[in-house]
C-alpha cells in the first residue's frame, strides 16, 4: 500500500512537471506583454522612463531567454517560492493562501452537498424504477446536466435575491467571521456548483443501482428474507458506490473549472476569479501557480479516489 502511494506520488511529480512545461510555454506563446498591460492599465507607463521599465523587466526576469526563465521558475518552485505576481506585485504563494481557502470552502461545500442528495436521489429513483419518482428524477437530472451554470446562477439571483430577497446576491464572508451570513452567501453559489453534480451523480447512481440490483448476490440477499432496507443498505449501496467514486474524483476537477464562472458571477474572491483576472492581465506568474496548484489538487484527489476504491471494494489490492 505504502509503496503504491509512493509510486503514485512519484508519477504525480512527473505529471506536475509536464504541467509546468505546458503551462509555462503555452501562456508565453500568447501575444502580449504582461508588464505592458499592467503599466498601461495603471497609466504609469507615461511616468516611467524607459530605464525604469527595463528595470521592471529585470525584476521579473522577463528580460532573460525563455528557457532561463523556465529554469528560474522551476528552481524557485523547488524552494517553495511561487514567484512575484506582476499585477498584484506580491508573492503569489501569499495570494494563493488568500484564495485557495475561499475556493475550497465554496467548492468543497458544493461537492459535499452534491454527494448525499445525488446518491440518495439516484438510489430512490432506481429502487422505484419506472414510477413517477423515477420519471421526475430523470427529467430533473437531465435538466441539471444540461443547464449552463451561468444561466442557473442568474435565475437563482433573480428568484432568491431580487424577487424573494431571501439571500444576498453577491459577495463572500468568511465563516470564521460570521458563520450565518457566510452560509447565506454560500447558498446560491453552492447550488450552482452542486446541481450539475447532483444531477450527474443521480444519473450514475441510478444506473449503477439498477445494475447491482440485478446481480445474483442481491437475489441471494432477497432470498435470505432480508427487508428492503437491509438489502439496499448492506448489499446494493456499497457496491453501487464504486462507479460513483470515479465520478466524484472527476468532479474535484469540475469544482475548479466551475469556480471560474461561479466566482465571477457571485463576486467570490477565490482562485477562479483570480485566474480570470490574471488571464486578462496575462499575469504569467499567477496563471502558472494557479494551474500548478490545481494540478496538485487533482492529482492528490485522484490518488485519494484510487485508495478509497480499496475500502469500497476488497477485491482491489495495491501492491
Amino acid at each position: 500500500m505504502l509503496s503504491y502511494i509512493v509510486r503514485r506520488l512519484l508519477w504525480g511529480l512527473v505529471i506536475i512537471w509536464l504541467v509546468t512545461l505546458i503551462v509555462f510555454f503555452v501562456i508565453r506563446l500568447l501575444p502580449g506583454d504582461p508588464l505592458l498591460i499592467y503599466l498601461a492599465q495603471n497609466q504609469d507607463i507615461n511616468s516611467m522612463p524607459r530605464e525604469q521599465i527595463d528595470a521592471l523587466y529585470r525584476e521579473y526576469g522577463l528580460d532573460k531567454p525563455i528557457l532561463v526563465q523556465y529554469a528560474n521558475w522551476v528552481f524557485n518552485l523547488l524552494r517553495g517560492d511561487l514567484g512575484l505576481s506582476i499585477t498584484y506585485r506580491q508573492n503569489v504563494g501569499k495570494l494563493m493562501l488568500e484564495r485557495l481557502p475561499v475556493t475550497l470552502h465554496v467548492g468543497m461545500t458544493g461537492f459535499i452537498v452534491s454527494l448525499v442528495p445525488g446518491v440518495l436521489v439516484g438510489l430512490i429513483a432506481a429502487m422505484r424504477r419506472a414510477s413517477w419518482i423515477d420519471n421526475v428524477v430523470t427529467i430533473i437530472s437531465y435538466t441539471g446536466i444540461a443547464i449552463p451554470v451561468f444561466w442557473l446562477a442568474y435565475i437563482l439571483i433573480y428568484v432568491f435575491g431580487l424577487r424573494l430577497k431571501w439571500l444576498p446576491i453577491a459577495g463572500y464572508v468568511s465563516p470564521f467571521e460570521d458563520f450565518w451570513l457566510s452560509t447565506k452567501h454560500l447558498i446560491m453559489p453552492v447550488i450552482c456548483i452542486s446541481l450539475p453534480g447532483i444531477a450527474a451523480t443521480a444519473r450514475q447512481m441510478r444506473s449503477s443501482v439498477l445494475e447491482i440490483a440485478s446481480q445474483d448476490y442481491v437475489r441471494t440477499a432477497w432470498s435470505k428474507g432480508l427487508a428492503e432496507k437491509a438489502v439496499v443498505c448492506r448489499h446494493i449501496l456499497k457496491n453501487s458506490l464504486i462507479p460513483i467514486i470515479t465520478l466524484l474524483g472527476m468532479r474535484i476537477g469540475f469544482i475548479f473549472g466551475g469556480s471560474v464562472i461561479v466566482e465571477n458571477i457571485f463576486a467570490i474572491p477565490g482562485m477562479g476569479r483570480l485566474l480570470v483576472g490574471s488571464i486578462f492581465a496575462q499575469d504569467y506568474v499567477v496563471i502558472q501557480a494557479n494551474a500548478l496548484i490545481m494540478a496538485v489538487i487533482i492529482i492528490l484527489s485522484n490518488l485519494l479516489v484510487d485508495i478509497s476504491y480499496g475500502w469500497f471494494d476488497p477485491r482491489i489490492r495495491y501492491d
Binding site: 448476490y217 442481491v218 437475489r219 441471494t220 432470498s223 448492506r234 456499497k238 457496491n239 469500497f312
Partner: peptide
C-alpha cells in the same frame, strides 16, 4: 412478497442456493 410473514419463510423456512457461486456472494462483504 415483502411482508413480514413471507420474509420469515424466505431464508428461514425455505432457503435457496443459486447457480453461480462466483456471483451469488456479495463481493464487498
Amino acid at each position: 412478497p415483502h411482508g413480514e410473514e413471507m420474509r420469515a419463510i424466505r431464508g428461514g423456512k425455505i432457503a435457496m442456493i443459486f447457480q453461480e457461486p462466483m456471483t451469488s456472494l456479495n463481493p464487498v462483504l
